[in-house]
Design a binder for these strands. Structure first.
Ligand code: MN
Ligand code: MN
Ligand code: MN
Ligand code: MN
Lengths: 222, 222
DNA sequence: CGTCACATTTTGATTATTCAAAATTACATC
DNA sequence: GATGTAATTTTGAATAATCAAAATGTGACG
């Protein structure tokens, strides 16, 4: 049986959930999964048990869930599709990076492999999507880059924005209007614990101050 | 409630069914609808009753079904999306005209209005899809061209292929390999009742003979 | 070790969509 | 007008996905 859109969404959420696990943790808690998918906890339990029966996940009651090799393969495929489609919508269709997520969320389940191959080719086998999120390769490998956040990168040193880890449209528009999109070069001038903020020097030496919360969502390379 | 993919498919099938109705007929028979959708007759009955409750169709038990104004509006929207997407897949993605139907069948239900607007613009507000099928306008009107088939058009007179009314991939590939795609100019040299065939002069004066059945699926303009 | 808060699972139910097969209806034909 | 065939509807059932609310388990803390 080919997996339903629902199953694909669960697998993708578990896949992404696994990446955000704290060191040592190996299982995605059911509550976190339910939250990510916007469904009731009981629904997640029921579904995860079905995924377990299908051999797509390891499920430890009361502890959480993790993908099997088979589940990982499917999940990587869906995530690859999602991110390629997002980039395609920006690059080819001309949509804005804050409005592509919902379309990709649906299209990832329905377009043909042919379609995916063609846009991958058109885009030149890209490695990251419009938000800087890495695109899994066709064979299911997820390229990893070591990045720092604006909370941890060196001060007074030019860094390049590489990734924005928040899909919220309003946040993305804020980033865009302040020239903080991936690819742009900035410098952290100061961090202040007390005011919970970070001061930046951005495009055209423009200064700006953003909250630590927001700063932690901007990943950069040295 | 926004209509489900299933509802959209039913409405679209009824819409298309209405166009193929013989003169005088005003209702699409349930059996024909079920056939078009590839579902059991009883399923169609159940669903059509639900569509009737929603005010999207007129339903006359044992006679058939017809769209209301509300149903027509939704159906035209879906058909517009389908055909724009097909053209987009051919023109922009570079897919072949025999492989775009299935992708369009799914995408029509999920892409945003924004996406549709953008591809409509990219394609220059096209009037027909890759098969020559007319694209409903944004306000739900379906432009009608008076076309003849290769069975009825004048003999020994250059005509231009305008539309191919059969989505079957093998048939489409046959048409393509014989240079009979929409836009190409041909001439009917003879029709023969007995052999049930039509002789054509096509590209580079190449002669070919096709069956009457196939000939009836090629629509042309004078 | 007992208790409480919180996470998780279970229960009971609903909605949407579908099918196979039985029952019914319509219509043409004798 | 009776009858038979074909179309249509009804019936009974299944699957997938979901929720709210009740029940239960887990782990922390005093
Ligand atoms: Mn999705
Ligand atoms: Mn992204
Ligand atoms: Mn469809
Ligand atoms: Mn078409």
């Amino acid at each position: 049986m080919l997996p339903s859109s629902t199953v694909e969404n669960y697998l993708k959420a578990i896949y992404v959930g696994e990446m955000h696990l704290a060191d040592g943790q190996t299982l995605v808690p059911m509550g976190q999964l339910a939250g990510a998918l916007g469904i009731a906890p009981g629904t997640a339990t029921t579904m995860v048990k079905a995924l377990f029966e299908s051999g797509l996940v390891v499920y430890e009651p009361y502890n959480g869930v993790r993908l099997t090799a088979a589940g990982q393969k499917l999940a990587a495929r869906v995530l690859r599709r999602h991110r390629l489609i997002e980039l395609f919508l920006v690059q080819v269709i001309g949509m804005n990076w804050d409005e592509v997520h919902d379309d990709a969320e649906q299209m990832e389940h329905v377009v043909s492999d042919r379609f995916i191959e063609r846009i991958d080719e058109m885009l030149g086998q890209p490695e990251v999507d419009p938000h800087g999120d890495p695109i899994p390769t066709a064979d299911g490998r997820l390229p990893h880059r070591a990045l720092e956040t604006l909370l941890t990168c060196p001060l007074h040193t030019p860094v390049t924005v590489a990734r924005v880890t928040d899909q919220d449209a309003a946040f993305l528009r804020f980033i865009e209007s302040n020239n903080l999109k991936p690819g742009q070069t900035i410098e952290v001038e100061a961090r202040d614990e007390v005011s919970d903020s970070v001061r930046l020097k951005g495009h055209n030496d423009e200064r700006m101050t953003i909250g630590a919360r927001a700063a932690s969502k901007l990943l950069v390379t040295g």
